[in-house]
Design a protein around this nucleic acid. Structure first.
Lengths: 229, 229
DNA sequence: ACGGGCGAGATTACACGTAGAATTGTGCAG
DNA sequence: CTGCACAATTCTACGTGTAATCTCGCCCGT
């Protein structure tokens, strides 16, 4: 039933947390598509729990923005409008800009070296036009900067937001020109990071993410919410 | 079953939302101090509701970071460490920097005029050394910039975070030198806003909030969490 | 006297019952 | 055939019951 993790302290998790995690996974994997109605009976049976923890999990996911609550009609998976995607990308750009600024204050030489290694590998993937190798490395670099910011609140906010548009973000493909430009920006970002020029890196990071925003928004101009609140 | 308690009024919202709002108010007003244990029985009686919506509200406030969940021991009001305050201030600085950048793109002349009016009034308050008049105006200006960003996700994130440190933020008083500098920064911010220099305003805004961070962190170096997890 | 263990009381986490709103199916009029 | 009204059904929101866990005072051994 309950899995007790080894280690100090109490790692026993709440049932509603477990359920929330599973539902998050279901939503992010696309198994539960946007606008899918949440049926209590179906999910309690599926998870083998009662309705109380399920309902608590629903409330949690609703405050996270993954679900929408419909009064007296339960909940459904939140559908993200292009407008919301744009807004989220701007916020993400701001969070990454902040992370970049802070990273310049706290990052170690070792971390910079690790990023440079990933970057080199990423450039190779770019030269070979291998997007499936490029994207994970790109993501790792951005996450390394986030880690180097030494700010857990920033990181968790970033994780929450980027999780919400994960599927949108990686389903969009940029043109070769955009891709080239992104690589160039990464080069410049590494230079600024090494020089620890926080303000400059911050501004560039914002512009970098913002250019991605346009790509994503364009590719998602169709999946709108037909029944907006 | 239960009749409507006085104080709730006409209730078209969810009970758990209503409860969450009231608890937020209780926490932010300081009526429920950090580390205060949440007693289900006491609060259900106080709010005139049953335990189910109360528990849902608790889960919501926990995901918002206002409460901490203690397995099998309920919840307590989250105590914020100086470290967390610093981290939050950096994130808030980032959000405000983002808002500043976006505001340069979207703000109307009328909104700029309104901010200038508030600013003029604020300068008057500063010259008279009237902090109780200064702070609300200062806050209004920052909120006007946030509104001008035309980004609801950004604004709600900002509201949530700034709500969490509201008491800390306005209990800290800065030195006359810091105050003078803040006013000067506001002058410069207005200039950049008028010129719609997003990048510059963004950087200045970050620095502006960051200088406040130091003031707050210093004044709150004592209210630590005695029982950290 | 002091520390460890035990048990009564208190409190929580979860399961389940109930009333009422929303949805859907059906029959009838136009 | 189509549109509307109404009833049956489904499903949610909230209330309450129950077993398990924690707290804390008390007893007993050393």
């Amino acid at each position: 039933m309950n899995k007790i993790e080894p280690g100090f302290g109490i790692n026993r998790r709440y049932l509603h947390d477990e359920v929330a995690d599973r539902m998050r996974a279901l939503i992010q994997s696309g198994e539960m598509a946007p606008c899918t109605r949440i049926n209590e009976g179906e999910l309690t049976e599926r998870f083998g729990i009662s309705r109380t923890p399920l309902r608590e999990a629903i409330k949690i996911l609703a405050t996270e923005g993954l679900l929408e609550l419909l009064p007296n009609r339960g909940a459904r998976v939140a559908s993200i409008s292009p407008r919301e995607i744009e807004e989220m990308m701007e916020v993400i750009a701001g969070l990454e800009a902040t992370a970049a600024d802070l990273a310049c204050l706290h990052i170690t030489e070792g971390e910079i070296a690790a990023i440079e290694a990933d970057h080199a590998e990423m450039v190779t993937a770019w030269k070979m036009g291998d997007a499936s190798a490029y994207y994970p490395l790109n993501r790792r670099i951005h996450e390394a900067v986030m880690t180097a910011s030494r700010n857990t609140i920033l990181a968790s906010l970033y994780l929450s937001l980027s999780g919400r548009i994960h599927r949108s973000r990686y389903s969009a493909h940029q043109t070769p020109e955009q891709w080239t430009r992104a690589v160039e920006e990464h080069e410049e970002m590494l230079r600024l990071l090494r020089a620890r020029e926080g303000a400059g890196l911050s501004a560039l990071m914002r512009a970098h993410i913002r250019s991605k925003k346009a790509v994503i928004a364009a590719s998602f101009a169709d999946v709108a919410d037909p029944a907006a609140a």
